[in-house]
């Protein structure tokens, strides 16, 4: 065995161990970004048949206009409170609710009566759709009960059925022609 051969074997061993060290370093570096990804896959998805959602529309009862950027609270059966805001279209949504368990929807907005309603999200349904009508508080300058509205005010729109079940709204008429609106005791 020549000296040269021993040297080359040593170099080969040396380079192999260096390579191992490099691999070793690499393995210590890589777990960082990999680790946080792995547990996400492990997290169990909530069973879809026991959770439900509510999608609501917030509406001014008098004008039928949707109400945007309004805080909506939800209290679940355990008393846990959640909050959201209505979108520009007056829509609000609560997800991951226990299906079949009653929740309370609360809305407090200046100029309206406090709203509180109980909703039971339906199991199996994607979302339970509701409409929340806020009742405007009659202002201080309002007329006494039963005395109607003042001349000069905007006539509230309505959507009601006639004797044949056909729907009529004030908006269908006003805009085209004048409307004489008569409230009566009925059965005349």
């Amino acid at each position: 065995m020549t000296n040269q051969r021993i040297r080359s074997t040593f170099v080969a061993l040396l380079s192999t161990s260096l390579l191992l060290v490099v691999i070793g370093c690499g393995e210590e570096e890589t777990p960082g970004p990999i680790d946080p990804v792995a547990p996400v896959d492990i997290v169990e998805k909530p069973p879809t048949d026991s959770t439900a959602g509510i999608r609501g529309l917030l509406v001014d009862q008098a004008t039928k206009q949707t109400l945007r950027d309004t805080r909506v609270k939800l209290v679940d059966s355990q008393g846990e409170v959640r909050e959201t805001s209505t979108t520009r279209a007056g829509v609000f949504e609560f997800e991951n609710l226990a299906a079949g368990e009653k929740v309370t929807v609360l809305v407090e907005l200046d100029g309206y009566e406090k709203h509180e309603s109980v909703v039971t999200p339906i199991a199996g349904e994607e979302t339970t759709k509701i409409t929340v009508n806020l009742v405007p508080i009659i202002k201080d300058d309002a007329l006494p009960p039963g005395d109607g509205l003042r001349v000069g005010t905007k006539a509230p729109d309505f959507n009601l059925v006639d004797g044949n079940g056909k729907r009529h709204s004030l908006a269908n008429y006003a805009g085209k022609q004048r409307v004489v609106l008569l409230f009566d005791r009925g059965a005349w």
Partner: peptide, 25 residues
């Protein structure tokens, strides 16, 4: 319309309105 009869809220108190084309009383 604040038109419920104060003595019997189940019925309307008779009243007339004229609403113009822009929806104003």
């Amino acid at each position: 319309y604040n038109a419920a009869d104060p003595f019997n809220p189940r019925i309307a108190r008779p009243q007339y309105y004229i609403i113009d084309e822009s929806g104003i009383i």
